[in-house]
Structure formats: structure tokens, C-alpha cells
Design a protein around this nucleic acid. Structure first.
Length: 425
RNA sequence: GGAGAGGUGGGUGAGUGGCUGAAACCAGCAGUUUGCUAAACUGCCGUACUCGUUAAAGGGUACCGGGGGUUCGAAUCCCCCUCUCUCCGCCA
């Protein structure tokens, strides 16, 4: 969430900037500034009374000890009056604070100044493209048919065991999947990320910290018995490592990577792009996360983007990098690059990564701060994350783009991980 | 799941109603000494909100797992919840 102080001091600017996200914040911001003024007044009044009250209480103790009981009784009557005053004001303070929090949660993050206006994915500028779209032989198959042809991914079996969106990888697809995971992790480690194996179920506070709660509740699998959520992305446990922490200036940036399965209910998203591996309830992903100093976070966003670009290049996939426009960005992000690879048989661009800077938006809600070099000033850190990469669509594109009549060839970088060069019947 | 013990500052740990935001020690930071390092010594060393200020200094309030209660006054007494540890049961 945004800082109340910042909003109060820059009300017009906030409203203006949120227009880029097609969000009309005027009403909320006005309410917030009003409530903030009221809150300060209440807080200061209550504190004054409380202070007097505390002083009196101390005196009472002393008076009793000195045997001046009548004076002590007088003072006790005084404390009664102060107590009533405090009792009267306190409920309004807490309701004001609650209301402020509610409203703060309704404000999306402010987009970075380089984020273009726009309302839909059509308005997203393409930043860079790379790779060559392959010419497939006539009769080339989409990956779901290849999966059946070589008996490597079984959607029906997943259906039987669990349900739609939970495919079973068999034989060489299973090995390819594992190879990709190891390849991505090793590459991340070589780039300075520390590998983490986090829990894949998280509590409410963690889900709230990264912004899955309260809004996207319906997107997560929920274990009611224990009040836990299956993670939709490793971003949640990784970033929450730093919840309620003060990171030292010299420890920035913190760079983490993790492989985890991810779970998404994808409620309401039925239709054409759910075919095959395109959209699943459970999928594998390697994630990268950075906690960074505010002055350096956009530098990190660019280097994370280059890092992801490096990966797709090494896999030989045709890709494009897209800068999300204000209207297409997530609620919490300040700037996001999406990566899409072209899956040549279904002739579709598939999103395989999304790299975002959240600035202090997540940090603010999870109390993630860093201590400035002077050792005194404490401020919210910036958080970033990106997929590097999401496996199923990479798998889909690899299978489709690398198919020949004889089989599917494995990209050279991966061979030492798979232990085979081709998938054939 | 059953029984018991316990949650205090970055860590260890003292503290059973007022002088405790909290001893002591360790770690950390700054300085003195020393050719460097080490040791020794001195000082500093929680967070949030708030008042104040260009900024600071400084003042105030809250917080000793979370919530409620008793009391003029609670880390300390009472109730509920939660988490951790030990033993038993189950088990990869």
C-alpha cells in the first residue's frame, strides 16, 4: 500500500498519477487526507490525557507510601475524569485508523513515470524482440498432440487423479521438466541469487503481505482446517522472508531464487487458452526476487529483465518483451515487463515471465524496511520479482518449435541436464 | 490427538503490582590506546505513531506472543486464543 503520509502531502499528484492506471482516486484520497487530519488530532488529544493520567497514577503511589491517603483519594477522582475522556475518544481513533487502512488497501500502486497510458493489452508497447520464429513442416502438431504422440504428458491421467489442469508428465517430459528447473536454478545461482526452498503453503499474514489477500482470495487454494493457502507463486514465501524485518543497508540487494510448484484456481478463466499446458491449476516455476534500495530498484528491474532475456535466448525461443501499460498492469506493481514466447504450432504468443518492481508498495504492507547508511534512518525497501521462468509454456513452446518429423530436439544448453538430445517414438 | 512446560529488546537471560522501555552479559556501532590486527577501556545501541523543527535536538503515547479483564497503576494477577519445546500416540 501507499504511505498515508505521502498521500496526505501529495494528494493531487497521487490522483494524477493513478489516472495512468485508469483509476479514479480523487474520492479516496480526499477521504484519506480528511481522516488523517482527524486521526492526528485524536491521537494528540488522547496522548495528552494519557500523559496526565500516567503522571497522576505515579503520584498516587507515592502519596500512599507517604501515608497521605486523603490526597491520594483526591487524585484518584481526577484520574477517573481523565479516564472517561480517553474512553470517549479512543473508539473514534481506532475506527478512524481502521477506515484509513481499508481505504489505503483500495488504492493501487502508483505507476512509474515511464509507464504508458492505455486500457488493454493492445496498448502495451513491445520493447524488444529476439529469436526466429521457426518454419515448421506441414502437419506440425500443437504440443497437446505431441504429448500424446510421444506419450510424454498425460492430461487425462491428471484428470483422473486430480482434475483438469493437473497434468501428468511422463518419461522424457518429466526429465525435461526437471532439467529446466535445474538449468534455471543453476543459472540464477551463477548470477548471484541465493537458492531457497520455501514452504509452498503460507499463512494469512504472508498472503496479505505480498497482496494476494484480501483481493485475490478466490485465486488461491485454501486449506480451511489450518487456515493456510497454497502459494500461487514463490514470490509469496520469498518476499515474506523479509516481513517485519529491518535489512541493513550493506545487505542490499537481497537476491533470492526458488523453484516451487504454484497453484492457481483460475476461477472464471475458461475458454480457448486453457488448452494443453497453456493454463494450469498446478505448474512449476523458478522465481527470482530482489529486495533493493529505492535508488537502485529500477536498475534492478532492468538487470532482472536482461537476465530473463538471457534465459529465453539460450533456449532458442522467439520472444518479445512487452512493457505493460497502465491499464494492463497489476494492482500492486509500479512497472512490469512481460515476456512472451512464440509457440509455433498453435501460432500464439505465450506469457512466460512477468518482471515487476513494486517499489515500496509491498514493503509498506509487510513492514519490510532497510536501515540507511547513516545507521539511523529507516525506510521501506523496494521489492521486485520475476519468473525465470514459468515452466509449462516454455515446455509447450520447446515441444512445438523444436519438432521435426523425426522427433523433438532438445536445446544444446539443456542436454547436459536431460541426458538426451531428442524426444522420439 | 493426549499430558506437561514455556513465549521478555538482534541473541542469552533477570524481572510476582508503582522508582522497569525494561538489569546483566553477548553481538553491533563510535571513540581512546596500540605500528597493523587482537586485547583493554569509554560512550551509544528497540520499534511504531505523535508533537516539534528547513532539518535536528528534544517532548509525549503505545508495545515484554495476540486479544480481553481486575486496579488509580500490570511484563508481573485473572480469562480466552495462539505459537514453541518435552514426553506419549501416529507417521515420511
Amino acid at each position: 500500500m501507499l504511505s498515508l503520509k505521502y498521500i496526505s502531502e501529495n494528494a493531487d499528484l497521487v490522483v494524477e498519477r493513478l489516472k495512468v492506471k485508469n483509476f479514479d482516486a480523487a474520492d479516496i484520497v480526499e477521504q484519506l487526507t480528511g481522516l488523517d487530519t482527524r486521526r492526528r488530532k485524536l491521537k494528540s488529544d488522547i496522548d495528552t490525557s494519557q500523559s496526565e493520567f500516567n503522571k497522576l497514577s505515579k503520584q498516587i503511589g507515592v502519596l500512599y507510601q507517604q501515608g497521605r491517603a486523603d490526597e491520594a483519594d483526591k487524585a484518584r477522582k481526577q484520574t477517573g475524569i481523565l479516564k472517561d475522556e480517553i474512553k470517549q475518544l479512543s473508539p473514534e481513533l481506532s475506527s478512524t485508523e481502521n477506515r484509513i487502512k481499508e481505504l489505503l488497501l483500495q488504492l493501487p500502486n502508483i505507476p512509474h513515470e515511464t509507464v504508458p497510458r492505455g486500457v488493454s493489452p493492445d496498448d502495451n508497447p513491445v520493447v524488444r524482440t529476439g529469436g526466429e520464429i521457426p518454419e515448421l513442416y506441414p502437419g506440425a502438431l500443437p504440443h497437446w498432440d505431441l504429448a500424446r504422440k510421444y506419450d510424454i504428458i498425460d492430461f487425462e491421467l491428471g484428470n483422473k487423479i486430480t482434475g483438469a489442469g493437473f497434468p501428468v508428465y511422463k518419461g522424457k517430459a518429466a526429465r525435461l521438466q526437471r532439467a529446466l528447473i535445474n538449468y534455471f536454478l543453476d543459472t540464477a545461482i551463477a548470477s548471484g541469487y541465493t537458492e531457497i526452498i520455501p514452504p509452498i503453503a503460507v499463512n494469512e499474514a504472508s498472503a496479505f503481505g505480498t497482496g494476494q489477500l484480501p483481493d485475490k482470495e478466490g485465486q488461491m487454494y485454501y486449506i480451511g482446517e489450518d487456515n493456510l493457502y497454497l502459494i500461487p507463486t514463490a514470490e509469496v514465501p520469498l518476499t515474506n522472508i523479509f516481513r517485519d524485518e529491518i535489512v541493513s543497508f550493506k545487505d542490499l540487494p537481497c537476491k533470492l531464487t526458488a523453484y516451487t510448484p504454484c497453484f492457481r484456481r483460475e476461477a472464471g478463466s475458461y475458454g480457448k487458452d486453457v488448452r494443453g499446458l497453456n493454463r494450469l491449476h498446478q505448474f512449476d516455476k523458478v522465481e527470482i526476487v530482489e529486495i533493493q534500495h529505492p535508488d537502485r530498484s529500477y536498475h534492478s528491474l532492468e538487470s532482472m529483465t536482461s537476465y530473463v532475456e538471457h534465459l529465453v535466448r539460450r533456449l532458442g525461443l522467439p520472444y518479445r518483451i512487452i512493457l505493460l501499460c497502465g491499464g494492463d498492469m497489476s494492482f500492486h506493481a509500479a512497472k512490469t515487463y512481460d515476456f512472451e514466447v512464440f509457440s509455433a504450432a498453435q501460432k500464439k504468443w505465450l506469457e512466460v515471465s512477468s518482471v515487476s518492481n513494486f517499489e515500496s508498495y509491498q514493503a509498506q504492507r509487510m513492514m519490510l524496511r532497510y536501515r540507511e547508511a547513516d545507521g539511523k534512518k529507516i525506510q521501506p525497501a523496494h521489492t521486485l520479482n520475476g519468473s525465470a521462468l514459468a515452466l509449462p509454456r516454455i515446455m509447450a513452446a520447446l515441444l512445438e518449435n523444436n519438432q521435426t518429423r523425426e522427433g523433438i530436439t532438445i536445446p544444446p544448453d539443456l542436454v547436459r541436464y536431460t541426458g538426451f538430445e531428442v524426444i522420439s517414438s
